[in-house]
Amino acid sequence: MSSSQSQQAVKMGFATRLLVYGILLIVAIFYLLPLYIMIVNSLKPLVEIQQGNMLSLPHEWTVAAWSSAWSTAQIGVEPTGLKPYFLNSLLMVVPAVFIATMLGALNGYVLTKWRFRGSEIIFAMMLLSCFIPFQIVIIPSARLLGLAGLSGTIAGLVAIHTVYGLGFTTLFFRNFYEAFPTELVRAAQMDGARFFQTFWRILLPNSGPIIVVTVIWQFTNIWNDFLFGASFSDADSQPMTVALNNLVNSSTGVKEYNVHFAGAILAALPTLLVYILSGRYFVRGLMAGSVKG
């Protein structure tokens, strides 16, 4: 396999390779350009940007824009920077991801290993929730949150993101557990493990790859969500995305592009971090050796 691949690589002429890598390079530069502009300009004083050299490196390197975006910039009416909203987002994302992932895993476990009459219909209905555009459910959701006394709170946002994440997390875990050897569950039953013991001790520890996939998916979606954040939060419970919008749209005085760039990067940082930290667990075959091999 590998030898035939290297032979093919040898056969590909130098010119062809140059062409292929040349195109790849151009495309990569094209896609990295916005990131470059953001980083470079966030490290410039505002005057340099106003002179109009977006692509050039800063003459005078400064992190003033970053600290301003983080702690002093005007968000709406308060000069608080993005810091409190960053915290809001964390307080919203972490519980929402955790709860939706756990419930999804539990759903997947029941739907595959404890099938009951109508379980397929329930799964189909949960799947349907993946295809409902969020805009449709905003008014009913607002009403429900109001009835529950959760409107305008972070807990309300956690609840709404958990509910709308369940469709996907259930789908992920259900498909993963479908291929999970039933004999392992049976062996645990014979060993005397009951419903939750089997789940905690056998299913979950062997769900590494799908947990990573689910966490990345949920984290990215919830962190980047603007619609629910804008609809269901108060001034003191706004997530990062809404605050960023307020920062950029605060129209008093000059547009501080360097601060906006820094704020946008800050807002994107956590999702990037999640990818970098957990991406390597994707490839690990955690199921190796459980059954015949």
């Binding site: 050897p181 049976r186 015949k292």
Partner: peptide, 27 residues
């Protein structure tokens, strides 16, 4: 099954992949 005083060896062995051999035996 756990109350019948029986033990079973499965076709695929069904060893718990997250546990050591000792953990498997003593589970």
């Amino acid at each position: 099954p756990s109350e019948r005083d029986i033990a079973m060896v499965f076709q695929s062995y069904a060893l718990y992949p997250n546990m050591t051999v000792a953990g498997n035996i003593s589970f």
